[in-house]
């Protein structure tokens, strides 16, 4: 069985003027289907950079990236955009909901890029909101929701078009313990019951416990891979 994510010899170099900064050094990593990976490491070690490469938000300087059987390191801008829409759900530390839109409309956003009718979009978004337990907040604007609720709306948005892969950058970094646990339980449920492959960046060892593997990154290099019995 092929891995969901295959990272081979991936490097990322940022150039500022004539300064070159190699943030990732020849990374090799496989993530199996339906795996739940926690990506840990000190600040500045390149976690976000790696996650963005896996999610197709940026392209590597060298190496190959294959996600769900598709080489993405050499895709053009619009092909990559279409690929993201179909394959990946994103969850960020600061939720990144559109402030002017209701929870329902935020969740419907990814569906605008599909051929679904308005009624189907409404229905699918309602199902996603139901799954995260926020059906009763569908008409609320982000500012009318707590941080934990906003993050659950963001999760609903990430899963509404049913992607195989979820990438999460410190999804509980801005939440209190209780809300963080709710969000992590939800992610675990999506992984176990709905078969989503999840890659989650976190600083919090407690959060990492929800994952089945922990991957450590230090100064742009993978240091160890800890097997965890979940």
């Amino acid at each position: 069985m092929t891995a969901q994510v295959e990272i081979r010899n991936v490097s990322k170099v940022y150039e500022r003027g004539n300064q070159k900064l190699e943030v990732l050094h020849s990374i090799d990593l496989d993530v199996e289907q339906q795996d739940f990976i926690a990506l840990m490491g000190p600040s500045g070690s390149g976690k976000t950079t790696l996650l963005n490469l896996i999610g197709g938000l940026d392209s590597p300087t060298a190496g190959t990236l294959t996600v769900s059987g598709q080489r993405i390191d050499n895709l053009g801008e619009s092909a990559l955009a279409r690929w993201r829409a179909a394959t990946v759900g994103f969850i960020f530390q600061f939720y990144n909901l559109l402030p002017m839109l209701s929870a329902q409309k935020n969740v419907e956003l990814p569906l605008l890029l599909t051929r679904l009718s308005a009624a189907q979009r409404r229905r699918n978004a309602a199902i996603a909101l139901e799954l995260v337990g926020l059906s009763d907040r569908a008409s609320h604007k982000p500012t009318e929701l707590s941080g934990g609720q906003q993050q659950r709306v963001a999760i609903a948005r990430a899963i509404v078009s049913d992607p195989a892969l979820l990438v999460c950058d410190e999804p509980t970094g801005d939440l209190d313990r209780h809300s963080a646990e709710e969000v992590l339980t939800l992610l675990q449920q999506l992984n176990r019951q709905h078969g989503k492959t999840i890659i989650m960046v976190t600083h919090d060892p407690k959060a990492a416990e929800y994952a089945s593997h922990v991957v450590h990154l230090d100064k742009g290099t993978l240091v160890e891979q800890v097997e965890r019995q979940a």
Binding site: S78, R82, A85
Partner: peptide, 8 residues
């Protein structure tokens, strides 16, 4: 929006 798959 771009993250969600909107093109340039």
């Amino acid at each position: 929006l771009k993250t969600l798959g909107f093109t340039n």
